[in-house]
């Protein structure tokens, strides 16, 4: 990597991230985070999720404000369409995670980004969720992400940034690999 100080500003504080990496290598307990969401049923398939507190670096934290997300299903599902479908929110999560990674990796590699846009497409055969065919899974049959990136770098350097972003992405890992889920009723 070049050691010369190019003026690259993607708005990511790489020094802080590298500092955190070093500190947490020495104190791995602090690396244990817990993310949380709460969700309230509104009416029909409409629900409202809230995000506020989380745990990390050994203590409780709160986002600056509480964020809320409306979720519903579209009218073709006989719903009222008061928010994005939950499966679409999964795509948002993946897109945002990968895009944050693109910015961070590019900053670290001293690549100036001018524009980054991603289009996500995910196929689903709803015979699964409707219980028509038990051989069809409920979830996506695949996800396709297409990036358009204008940056101060060669096409291969841009591809490498996107590949590295996938390699370090939490949501990519959550979707690509199995996760144990425990659902309880209290």
């Amino acid at each position: 990597m070049a050691t010369s100080k190019k003026q690259v500003d993607n708005g990511v504080n790489v020094e802080a991230l590298l500092g955190a990496r070093k500190a947490l290598t020495e104190a791995p307990e602090g690396a244990k985070f817990q993310w949380r969401a709460t969700c309230k049923w509104v009416y029909g398939t409409h629900s409202r999720s809230s995000i506020h507190g989380y745990f990390g670096l050994g203590e409780e934290h709160k986002h600056k404000t509480e964020f809320t997300f409306e979720a519903d299903h579209p009218e073709v599902f006989a719903s009222e369409d008061k928010g994005a479908a939950p499966v679409e929110m999964v795509l948002c999560g993946l897109a945002s995670c990968l895009t944050a990674g693109v910015a961070a990796v590019a900053q670290h590699r001293e690549i100036q980004l001018r524009s980054v846009s991603a289009t996500l497409e995910a196929g689903m055969d709803i015979q699964g969720i409707l219980g028509i065919d038990s051989d069809v899974r409920n979830g996506f049959d695949g996800i396709k992400v297409t990036y358009k990136i204008d940056a101060d770098a060669t096409p291969d350097e841009i591809k490498a940034v996107v590949a590295q972003s996938q390699k370090r992405s939490a949501v990519y890992d959550i979707i690509a690999n199995p996760t144990n889920i425990t659902v309880e009723v209290s």
Binding site: Q164, K167, A176
Partner: peptide, 26 residues
Amino acid sequence: LAHVSLGDGKAQFSGSLRNQCALADL
């Protein structure tokens, strides 16, 4: 290989193959 469930012997594999190969090619 991402997971093998104890009992039913179902093995699950990561959906990351394409990126693993892209990383190696690059």
